[in-house]
């Protein structure tokens, strides 16, 4: 079937129908877009430092309120998962046996992510309780 005029077919027409691969793909995309969204905000807040001490400190104080802490924890979780799952993607692409151990690698991603995330979240949330 040829694509309709003015439309371009997606690169790869694979569709996940459930399973672990689908979830790690969705999470990888979601966390990636979320972290990029924060990066844009973070470049703007850091640029306030070029306007002087008062402007920067006033804005950064908003980040230090208890309301923001859960969002900060969510951000750290997104970065950790995206990093560990990204390493899995690299291994599957470049390591000869990456595909064979795909399931074990997925389990390792989840375990290592949690091992990194839980203590970090604890350290970050402790001051607000």
């Amino acid at each position: 079937m040829s694509p309709a005029a003015g439309k371009t077919e997606p690169y790869h027409k694979t569709r996940y129908k459930g399973g672990g691969g689908m979830w790690s793909w969705i999470l990888h995309r979601g966390t990636g877009l979320m972290v990029l969204g924060f990066l844009f905000l973070h470049i703007l807040d850091t640029s306030l430092i070029g306007f002087g001490k008062h402007h920067y400190d006033t804005f950064v104080n908003i980040y230090k309120t208890a309301w923001f802490r859960p969002l900060e924890v969510l951000l750290i979780g997104a970065v950790i998962y995206h990093s560990m799952n990204g390493l899995r993607v690299i291994l599957v692409d470049f390591w000869d046996r990456g595909v064979r151990y795909e399931r074990q690698l997925s389990v390792a991603v989840n375990v290592v992510s949690l091992v990194m995330f839980v203590p970090s979240a604890f350290i970050m949330l402790k001051p607000i309780f």
């Binding site: 950064v60 230090k64 970050m124």
Partner: peptide, 13 residues
């Protein structure tokens, strides 16, 4: 964000 006091100590100085 995690060690040494995290974002709490981040300011201009």
């Amino acid at each position: 964000h995690v060690f040494g006091g995290g974002v709490e100590r981040v300011n201009f100085d």
